[in-house]
């Protein structure tokens, strides 16, 4: 019988929250990927998005604000066989966790990162988040936003993520497919999800997005995949970047770039650490049947002997 990926916990997101669509897409993607209960884990930081692991019937961790990525990286590097999903908000991943967001692009560990992008800090009552534009004033703000916005898709492309996409939480069919593609990517995937906050963001509503979003894949010539045989990868990268900068009137969703030529961090480690992928840290024996160490300090540290 297929694994039931939903837990029986009461979900305490606000009615009408975009998070529900993300959860549904995730659960459908996990089911369609035919994962077993031991195949994947869901890791989060803090905030409304941080509650997601509790709603998914897989091992999970609801860690610290901004720290979903480093925790997930530790899980993936110690046991590379696991599929590791990260759910985080825009404040979580792009403000307090921004350093990790950029570093993860450089690593390309193999995480599937789902960014719950609603332009506000919901759980602390609607402060402006890093994706809110300069001068915008939602009903929860006492004055217009004095920060400018950061573009998560452009930032992910610049940081080096090998898969960069955007979904819309009210289009679960497209989002589910994007998540599946992200899970299949060997390196790290960043999926920015436009996710209206019905309580604190009265500007970027479901209607706001419905009027603006369009799908990159609707253009039949759109091919975001870069492989070793791609003739001009730089041209594709440039195109992805120019699409990433589109906003205001028209907002593209879909896959901006999938670069299969960037090796994942686990493959990079496998180049140097003996049998890393076949005997990763989590599956190694550390003691013999009597409980003693199996490491030979004399032969391992022969260079320290005089």
């Amino acid at each position: 019988m297929a694994h039931n990926f939903r837990t029986d916990l009461a979900i305490d997101w606000c009615p009408g929250c975009g998070d529900f669509g993300i959860l549904t897409s995730m659960i459908q993607a996990l089911g369609e990927m035919n994962y077993g209960p031991q195949d994947a884990v869901v890791i989060s930081g803090i905030g409304c998005s941080g509650k997601t692991p509790h709603y998914v019937n897989l091992a999970g961790a609801h860690t610290l604000h901004g720290r979903g990525i480093p925790f997930a990286t530790g899980v993936k590097l110690a046991n590379p066989k696991l599929k590791v999903l990260v759910t985080g908000g825009d404040g979580d991943l792009l403000s307090i966790g921004a350093g990790h967001f950029v570093a993860e692009g450089r690593r390309n560990t193999g995480l599937t990162i789902i960014l719950f992008d609603n332009e506000v800090y919901g759980l602390t009552k609607g402060q402006a988040s890093p994706t809110m534009p300069l001068g915008m004033q939602t009903k929860s703000l006492s004055k217009p936003n004095v920060y400018n916005r950061v573009n998560p898709v452009a930032m992910a492309l610049a940081a080096g993520y090998s898969f960069v996409a955007r979904g819309f939480s009210f289009d679960t069919k497209q989002l589910k497919e994007i998540i599946k593609r992200g899970l299949m990517n060997d390196g790290s995937s960043l999926i920015d999800v436009l996710q209206p906050c019905p309580t604190y963001n009265n500007i970027n509503t479901m209607e706001f997005y419905r009027q603006r979003v369009y799908k990159l894949e609707d253009d039949k010539s759109w091919d975001p995949i870069i492989t070793e045989s791609t003739k001009d990868p730089m041209e594709k990268y440039k195109l992805a970047n120019s699409k990433a900068l589109e906003w205001d009137e028209k907002i593209p969703t879909g896959i901006f770039m999938e670069n299969r030529t960037i090796p994942s961090f686990t493959r990079r480690l496998n180049e140097y650490i003996p049998n890393y992928l076949t005997s990763p840290p989590a599956t190694q024996a550390i003691s013999d049947s009597k409980g003693y160490t199996i490491v030979d300090p004399v032969r391992t540290f022969a260079d320290k002997i005089v």
């Binding site: 890791i43 961790a61 860690t63 610290l64 720290r67 990525i69 480093p70 925790f71 997930a72 990286t73 530790g74 899980v75 590097l77 110690a78 046991n79 696991l82 350093g99 990790h100 570093a103 840290p281 989590a282």
Partner: peptide, 13 residues
């Protein structure tokens, strides 16, 4: 910050 949290993640495997 990453160092301590990443080690914690690895510990859970």
């Amino acid at each position: 910050i990453s160092a301590v949290v990443m080690a914690a993640g690895a510990a859970m495997t």
